[in-house]
Amino acid sequence: MKWLVISDTHMPKRAKQFPDTLEDELKKVNHIIHAGDFQTMDVYEKLSQYGKLHGVYGNIDEEDLKEQLPAKKTLEIEGFRIGLVHGHGEKKTTEKRVLEAFDEKMDIIIFGHSHMPLLRYVGKTLLFNPGSVTDKRKLPYYSFGRLHIGEELQAEHVFFNR
């Protein structure tokens, strides 16, 4: 099973539409994970047109998104436990906050907030931040992620220019 993983779309503030690279990828998947900071309900609704959308709200999301989406979510897919959280908060690093967000063991924690792509293990938990498709900050590329779920759980980044 292939899943698309995105976060920090920040639309319409950072972009008026999805980048072509993301739009092409959205047409190939049935499931989308968004780790928060959609910004508006319009972005949520547009993503929902491409497939089953699993999301959490972020710190800049409108109130209607915060009312509809949880702050954190656990998915169980093919026997893998997937934690989903945006990662915003006070004190500590984003990584520490996301690790502390779940009491139970996760195989992978998907998060956003920092806009910094990350793929690394902490113990036996894979931390995956897909980066941002609209706000790369000082990084050379925009990014999103793919999650492959089968006998194994694999995550990868897709980097692109606008």
Results as ranks from 00 to 15, higher is better:
F18D: 03
T9Q: 04
Q49C: 06
L126C: 09
K138T: 11
L65Q: 10
E95W: 00
Y142S: 01
A101R: 13
R137A: 01
G123F: 02
L22D: 04
A101E: 14
V56I: 05
E76H: 13
G150R: 12
G123H: 02
K105A: 08
V85L: 07
H10C: 00
A101C: 08
K96G: 03
I60T: 13
T125I: 09
H113T: 08
R81V: 13
H148E: 13
H34L: 10
D8M: 04
L84F: 15
H54W: 15
H31S: 08
K2L: 03
S48T: 05
L22R: 07
L126H: 08
G89I: 10
A155G: 10
L84W: 12
K16M: 12
I108Y: 07
G83T: 08
P130A: 02
P70T: 10
H54L: 03
Y141R: 12
H88N: 12
I82E: 04
D64Y: 04
L26C: 13
V29Q: 06
E104R: 09
K46S: 12
L4N: 04
Q68N: 12
K92V: 09
K138I: 07
K105D: 05
Q68R: 15
G36T: 15
P19M: 10
K138R: 15
Y44S: 07
I149K: 09
F80E: 02
P130T: 12
M1I: 03
L118M: 14
R146K: 14
M106E: 04
L75V: 13
E23M: 13
H115A: 02
L22W: 07
G89S: 08
L22C: 03
F160E: 06
Y44Q: 11
M106W: 06
F80R: 09
G58A: 05
H88P: 09
D8Q: 04
P12H: 07
K73S: 07
T9W: 09
N161W: 00
A35T: 12
D37F: 12
F144G: 00
D8K: 06
S7E: 01
N30G: 13
P12Q: 01
K28I: 01
M116P: 02
L147I: 14
E156W: 08
Q154D: 07
N30I: 02
K138C: 07
K91L: 05
K28Q: 13
E76P: 05
G51W: 02
E45K: 15
V43S: 09
G123W: 01
L99P: 09
V43R: 05
L118H: 11
Q154V: 14
L75E: 10
V43L: 03
H86T: 11
G145V: 12
Y44E: 10
K73D: 06
T94S: 07
G36N: 12
I6V: 15
T93W: 00
P130R: 11
G51T: 10
Q17P: 00
M1Y: 05
E152L: 05
Q154T: 14
